[in-house]
Design a protein around this nucleic acid. Structure first.
Lengths: 224, 224
DNA sequence: CGATCGCTTGATTCCGATCAACAGGAGTGG
DNA sequence: CCACTCCTGTTGATCGGAATCAAGCGATCG
């Protein structure tokens, strides 16, 4: 088990990067505390009570499910501005861990639900959030169930580049192992596939965590 | 494209099997029309407007996503009593087809959303429904990403037996191909794996569509 | 009866997993 | 500064499981 090295501070207004203008997000920034998590710290675990709602300020978080023999499925990466930890049941059905040192706004779930009971707009946003996540996860299922290694990696790269920057240069916050567990592959296969893509002049790898997309069309073609 | 051979009739009260007591379900039965779909009929397609909400009365429905080269991921099977077709966006992100001849209650989405705007209880149920689906899909991701063929088939059998009957005898409404596309395998592998399970005395296959679970413990062990 | 469809079974291939060694950086401490 | 370890990522060799290709089988139906 990891040690909680959380630095709690009151949130200073709405000065956060990635802050969206919608009212739920705004409410979270007003009501929440800002906490720092060190790399690899477990934010919550599978089966723990769903006490809080979270919004990434900086850093990156992974959600995952574990099989008791250690096999792992990463279900999502959460980037700055995104909300996670929202579930209807009273216990989390998966765990969340900081991939890099991260700062995260944390709000009592009961406070948000209280808001939603009075404010239809907030309630609707909670639903929308869940529904968007559902759609994202269903796209992920298509990757896991239908695609080969090359297609999976290509899909991941396109998806990721769309999410954080629109530039062709990607800075990956997660390890090869995280990517592998996200795609249902092994670390070795992810590594090999990326180097192969570099050899095909589809991407460039200045360092292992930085990727330049040189040929988006080729990547999309792999996706079909 | 398939031919719509729908027999529309007004719904006679709340006499349907699988009718749940919750108010959303009840409202759908009151407001909806009951339509018959023949086997393999497409109820709606990917990209079509989300005009309706559906509730299975009898038969079974599959939801799936297609890759343009024909590869298919079945994302869910919908059994009697279950609601499907609920999405936030204005177009469907996947298609739905009747696996067997089915009768389905169909309700204008706008009517339900209208209800939800006035009735907080209904709104909450819409959210709950989406969240439950999200949880189900995340469990499905674990199957697709982490498991081998044997484990996948075992997981499917246990999951299915829990859903429809608690008896050990299962009557499958779907083909081997449907199961394969649900599990991210080929038809041949599903067939082989099932026969292997029969050889191990874990299950019995009186016919290809009827399965008797003789050793649930062994199936659960495969799941880990 | 032939025909089609869903399923099974066999032979072979191939992709990705596995096992293993190694390389490169970052951080630490002498 | 170097020597050291730890960690992540790369690369190679081999193996195995599931896909693929192909044939056969048994229902159901016109």
């Amino acid at each position: 088990m990891l040690i909680r090295t959380a630095t709690t501070t009151r949130t200073p207004g709405r000065l956060f990067p990635g802050a969206s203008t919608d009212s739920l997000s705004a409410a979270m920034e007003l009501m929440g505390a800002c906490i720092s998590y060190v790399r690899n710290f477990e934010i919550y675990g599978e089966g723990e009570p769903t006490e809080y709602l979270y919004k990434v300020v900086s850093g990156t978080v992974r959600s995952c499910k574990l099989l008791d023999d250690g096999r792992r499925q990463v279900t999502a990466f959460h980037m700055p501005g995104e909300i996670f930890g929202l579930e209807v049941g009273d216990t989390h059905s998966f765990s969340a861990e900081a991939i890099a040192d991260s700062t995260i706004i944390v709000v009592k779930r009961s406070a948000i639900l209280g808001l939603a009971a009075r404010d239809v707009e907030i309630a609707h946003q909670l639903w929308t959030l869940t529904a968007r996540e559902l759609q994202r996860v269903q796209d992920h299922m298509l990757i896991l169930g239908c695609m080969g290694a090359k297609e999976k990696v290509a899909a991941f790269l396109l998806q990721f580049s769309k999410r954080c920057s629109d530039s062709n240069e990607i800075k990956l916050p997660m390890s090869r192992q995280d990517i592998a567990d996200y795609l249902g592959l092994t670390m070795e296969t992810v590594s090999r596939t990326m180097n192969q893509l570099e050899h095909d002049a589809t991407i460039t790898l200045p360092t292992s965590r930085r990727i330049v997309l040189r040929n988006r069309a080729a990547l999309k073609r792999l996706n079909a």
